[in-house]
Amino acid sequence: MVKIGQQQHILPEEISIIVVAIVVGTLARAWVLKEDYRQYPSYPNGVLINIITGFVAAALGAVALPALMSKNFVAVTFLTLALQQFRDVRKTEKESLSDLEHTEYTYRGSAYIDGIAKTFESRNYIAFITSFFTSLTISILPFNIWINIAGGILVGLAVFFFLKRFTKGKTIGDIAQVKPGKVEVKDSSLYVDGIYVSNLLGTDNAEKLFKEEGMAVVIYPNENHFRINLDNFGQRQAALFEATRALGNKRYNFTRKDYEKGRVVITLVPIKQDIDALIEVVKKCPLLESAKKSHDVMKANLKEEK
């Protein structure tokens, strides 16, 4: 920055740094936004809101370095505002999804909402860090401005892909097999592959509806310790929610775990009769951070190894 009289003016190079870093950071937010499409409560307004908050995050990351370089240390305190803003994004998303709980076919559940809200917050950090590293690279490279900008974009992309990979969670399909289940109704009780599910089918209509249109999948954990994740009520509710959301829900939706073998049943009467889609959606259901446990770490702690 150059001081002319009492006024400070931004140099053209600094404008280039800030603009490029903001664009790269905002694009980073937009790229991870696409991946999360199905988690959106509202499209296209939800998308717009998140791109704008991503833009603000990118802008904060972009101007941090030029502010430091101009020895304007007070200006750096706005980074605390950035943190506050990201936390607000998480809070807003949580509130918004919680408000929608009673309008969906079934509950998302607090655990799933918490996971989604955390993801939204972390995606803003991705925009922030990507734009910060882009800005940093352009500033420190000793070549001409165009080469510096190209270098900054490359570093920004590298940071983005690293962060995207780092924050990518696992899904149910990574730790379990999902197979179609056989629906049976005996004496007004519902069974899937012999596992008792519910006795809420007390009328002839209910029995008939489930026999004719009921669909079910059974989740088989690949390892016994994966039951810790899959048996978690929040995790099962998340899978059930995704199933009802993807296929619609005419009537009835249940989830049940089998204590003996660790199987988990997801069953419903969907609007769209597509068993492959049901299997796919359950497989792609994210493993919740709150339910996730590191088996190796737990093993080490339990044995109290030195």
Partner: peptide
């Protein structure tokens, strides 16, 4: 493994 209290 209990239910979430919010979804009881």
């Amino acid at each position: 493994m209990g239910r979430e209290s919010s979804m009881k």
